[in-house]
Design a protein around this nucleic acid. Structure first.
Lengths: 143, 143
DNA sequence: TAAACTGAAACTATATCAATTACAGATAAA
DNA sequence: TTTATCTGTAATTGATATAGTTTCAGTTTA
């Protein structure tokens, strides 16, 4: 479910540009997915206090913070994103062989370590940085 | 396909402990998968020069290097492991909207950056380190 | 009180990934 | 030189993960 992260970042960047209250339908259209998924993801961002929501008529999602002060770490924490993982486990915990019984644990330690590494890197990227990347990429593609 | 990495690391650790030539069947039994998959993964390690193989009767796989001089970076390079990725892309490249058309590219840049970060971390872990981790974990679990 | 929205859950469709099966080519032993 | 045992590789099947769809209860405003 790593793609939830993409939906969330895309959504916040869009909200940040529009400044007004945006419905899940309009967000879904820009992100290219369905409104239900947008709502599921944005609800988590709301719980984390990153965005605000309004139910009822004229309701939707709103981002009111300074884009340079919201980083991607806060978003992946809100979604509990796992960057590196493997559901498949090698070996078998219930054998006397140290390797067969222990390798999946060791691999999980490694994946956990890589995840923490990734999360820390996300701390260094803000919503404003993304916006600037978008502008730079557009200019580059025109050249 | 991150689990190929687990199969490879597990396989090399096992070969390093046994020192002799081991068949794909025996490896598969310890890793808990099927021989065909083991062969597919180990063939790549052979191409990268990490292990040697022998076909025919009494054939199999062999690891003859110093375990403290083979790190996980060489294994993930051999397998071309992608730690962080998302096949799902948000937005749509063919729209005038800068965000809808550009976000998937920006996310891909981020994933690429995270991958390089992970690969560099793998450089710091050797097969010997894994072996020592296994021993340490076993002692801990007995305590 | 009606319309337009979120929140949340159940269900379906699809895509990814591992298992299975099969076989050609290599090698060593009899 | 023939047979058994192994790798290398590809095609097919099966299982699992993940995105899409549908539905409805609750909220808010006009």
């Amino acid at each position: 479910m790593t793609s939830e992260f993409a939906v969330a970042v895309h959504g916040v960047v869009y909200l940040n540009q529009r400044k007004t209250t945006i419905s899940s339908e309009e967000l879904a259209s820009n992100v290219c997915t369905n409104p239900a998924r947008v709502r599921k993801v944005m609800a988590k961002l709301k719980k984390a206090g990153i965005i605000t929501t309004k139910e009822g008529l004229e309701g939707g999602y709103h981002f009111a913070k300074d884009s340079s002060e919201v980083n991607l770490r806060s978003i992946c924490d809100a979604l509990d994103v796992t960057f590196v993982s493997s559901s498949w486990k090698s070996g078998n915990v219930d054998t006397p062989c140290m390797i067969a019984s222990g390798m999946s644990g060791v691999m999980d330690e490694i994946y956990g370590d890589l995840n923490e590494l990734c999360r820390r890197r996300m701390e260094e990227i803000t919503i404003k940085d993304i916006q600037e990347k978008l502008i730079r990429n557009r200019l580059d593609s025109k050249a």
